[in-house]
Amino acid sequence: MSATQRFHEVANDALVMISEQLWPGAKLCLAIYTEGEPGLDIVLKDQGINLDEVLSTLRRAGLSIDGGNAYKRDLCDLIAGALALGKQNRNTPPEGHWAQRFWDIGRAEGEFQEELVSALKGVVKVADRETDEFDAARSAIAKATT
Score class of each variant (00 low, 15 high):
residue 122 G to K: 11
residue 130 E to S: 10
residue 96 G to T: 04
residue 74 D to R: 14
residue 145 T to C: 00
residue 104 D to H: 03
residue 133 E to R: 05
residue 143 K to Y: 14
residue 69 N to A: 02
residue 114 E to N: 15
residue 123 V to P: 03
residue 82 A to H: 04
residue 70 A to R: 13
residue 91 N to E: 11
residue 105 I to S: 12
residue 131 T to Q: 03
residue 79 I to V: 12
residue 76 C to G: 06
residue 138 R to L: 01
residue 126 V to C: 06
residue 94 P to R: 10
residue 62 G to Y: 03
residue 110 G to H: 02
residue 72 K to I: 11
residue 61 A to M: 11
residue 103 W to K: 02
residue 117 V to T: 10
residue 103 W to C: 01
residue 115 E to H: 15
residue 74 D to F: 14
residue 88 Q to S: 07
residue 139 S to M: 13
residue 120 L to M: 11
residue 133 E to Q: 05
residue 142 A to G: 13
residue 90 R to S: 12
residue 83 L to A: 03
residue 83 L to V: 10
residue 68 G to H: 11
residue 132 D to H: 11
residue 62 G to N: 01
residue 123 V to D: 06
residue 127 A to T: 13
residue 73 R to V: 13
residue 76 C to K: 12
residue 72 K to F: 08
residue 115 E to F: 13
residue 121 K to N: 04
residue 85 L to N: 14
residue 52 D to R: 09
residue 57 T to L: 09
residue 135 D to C: 04
residue 74 D to P: 03
residue 117 V to D: 01
residue 126 V to N: 11
residue 96 G to P: 01
residue 90 R to Y: 09
residue 66 D to K: 09
residue 97 H to A: 05
residue 93 P to E: 00
residue 59 R to Q: 08
residue 120 L to K: 06
residue 67 G to T: 08
residue 138 R to T: 04
residue 97 H to V: 00
residue 132 D to I: 10
